[in-house]
């Protein structure tokens, strides 16, 4: 029978093994690592989210607001001014890109299931950018563009928001989403730089089929009514690094508890947000075919007619079960 000293020794050994591994030492994983993704070797299961379709494979039956979330790309973070910037771990990062249409959202999703209940942690090194200007895209004519003052670049105000979220379903069909969104600018393209969460569950294809929800192409699929979002914590500024072509990687660690169906906390660089009291509204109706669903998605949403990009250098998903 393991003694307390044995457990302490095992924990110290595990910690030492993690610290000795240059790929893992920058993370703080829970005891079991479910997934470790770096993007030198493909997209690692991160794929485009799409709404559901009928039995005839007719994609006209996909909801308008869930049919164009764009394929994720393996990006070397290459820009017009410096060429290849490269990622943090190697040359490639996962890039989620929007179209240059205000309200458009790019979404990549990773699909797992749960073999237990308890703490689940999502960690990533990320960065975000709005597209640099060109003769073709004319971003300087678009909403959010301002004067270049030598420090703040107009493109920073043309980045809307990025989101980390889950889609989880307990056995028996109780389904819910934990969501954290960084809103860089509001819908008027003014800096807000704050964290927000939705107070309603995401509209689903079944609700559309039942006539309960019908959203348009650019509606916010996570929670379409801006009034259904609340702030948490203090505003947080990041290192956009002045121009749309310099990439600085930011650490994000988000923990949830699937035994309580709650958020726990969000760490982003040097700030930790207690999320325990943030409500996580489940769907009123149960869902079939989703037992033990454990999906993670990341999205980026532009508030201007300018492409927005979310880059993930690497992702680590760990659990305590």
């Amino acid at each position: 029978m393991a003694t307390n000293n044995d457990r302490v020794a095992a924990d110290e050994f595990r910690r030492a093994a993690l610290l000795a591994n240059p790929e893992l030492s920058r993370f703080n994983p829970l005891p079991r690592i479910l997934a470790y993704d770096q993007f030198e070797t493909g997209t690692h299961g991160w794929t485009e989210l799409i709404g559901n379709h009928d039995g005839y494979s007719n994609l006209d039956t996909v909801d308008d607001h869930m049919r164009d979330f764009r394929p994720p790309q393996l990006s070397s973070c290459t820009f017009f001014d410096v060429g290849t910037h490269g990622a943090m771990s190697g040359n490639y990062a996962l890039k989620v890109a929007t179209r240059p249409i205000a309200g458009h959202t790019g979404v990549a999703i990773r699909r797992l299931t749960m073999s237990g209940r308890g703490l689940v942690q999502f960690e990533t090194y990320f960065t975000y950018k709005a597209e640099a200007g060109s003769a073709e895209n004319q971003v300087w004519e678009q909403a959010g563009a301002g004067e270049w003052d030598g420090n703040i670049h107009p493109s920073e105000q043309q980045f809307g928001a990025f989101t980390v979220a889950t889609d989880i379903c307990d056995p028996g069909g109780l389904r819910y989403h934990c969501v954290a969104r960084y809103q860089n600018t509001d819908l008027n393209n003014e800096f807000t730089r704050r964290w927000i969460y939705p107070v309603v569950p995401e509209p689903t294809p079944r609700e559309h089929l039942e006539g309960k929800a019908k959203l348009s192409y650019t509606d916010d699929f996570t929670a379409p009514d801006p009034a259904d979002w609340r702030t948490f914590g203090e505003p947080q500024a990041f290192c956009y690094n002045e121009v749309p072509t310099k990439v600085n990687w930011h650490y994000l660690r988000w923990q949830i508890d699937t035994s309580l169906r709650r958020n726990v906390e969000l760490q982003v660089n040097d700030q930790i947000f207690d999320m325990r009291d943030i409500p996580v509204p489940p769907y009123a109706e149960t869902y079939d075919s989703l037992d033990n669903l454990l999906n993670f998605y990341v999205s980026t949403r532009t508030h201007s007619n300018v492409r927005n990009f979310l880059y993930l250098d690497s992702v680590l998903i760990s659990v305590d079960w």
């Binding site: 790309q73 393996l74 990006s75 070397s76 290459t78 290849t84 040359n91 890109a97 179209r99 492409r307």
Partner: peptide, 8 residues
């Protein structure tokens, strides 16, 4: 179509 990065 949208730009697709594929240097790899």
């Amino acid at each position: 179509t949208e730009p697709h990065e594929a240097g790899w």
